[in-house]
Amino acid sequence: MPWVLRGLRNGVVTTGYPRRSDPYAEAFPASVRPLVVGSANGVPVDDTLCPTGAIHNRAGALQLDAGQCILCGRCVRERPDLFGWVSGSQTARLHRQALVVPQLPETDEAVELVRRQLAARVRRMFRRSVHIRHVDAGSDGSEEWEALALLNPVYDVHRLGIFFTASPRHADVLLITGVGSHGMAEPLRRTVEATPRPLVVIAAGTDAVSGGLVAPSYAVAEGIGELVDVDVWVPGSPPSPFSLLHALLLAVGRIPPEGR
């Protein structure tokens, strides 16, 4: 069989993440943030600047909600003085409000609280291996590609004891993609119900977090948070595999949360 030799061809291509940092993960432009911290008085921000309304000018301070950002880059193109790309794939957060940058001071405490609650829930159960059940609740199809990429030799999540499972009965983590279409509400509810506890739910992608550009629409919820209790929020349209991996490791308490 030629495949044995072909399999050895490129040597080890697998990333060292999370034990070592990965250059691709570090360099990937996975988010946008305001460059002007604090006062942005007198800076008029046009309503048409952001197609999803992720940019707010609250009391003179610019804020960007990564949970609504679809990474189209329009704000960076049109106002490079105010917005810039941020490298680094560690974009998952344990609290919806923690996706808003720069963060409000009160968010820190809330994040710390949910982190402790989540840690208490998963500490004993998910120490070695976890099984993920993916559910598409109305994605555009790209999130599935990035989730599947976790199984390719570059990310190879099996080495971390992370497996995808076909049955919700065997699942510890639900990885939910998509905006939360009304047609998927019932299948999703049944899937959640069939999953044993403790259970960690990940909202994967800007669509799943907030509805992105697809909501508001007669056929969808504004993110899956309206349908299930979400533990980990991963923005991105779609989130890159490293961001999904970050979310998974965060979900099972293997790495400390960012932005604390």
Partner: peptide, 11 residues
Amino acid sequence: PHAKHRGVQKR
């Protein structure tokens, strides 16, 4: 296929 209908056309 209807479960995934997102109403994009109207959007």
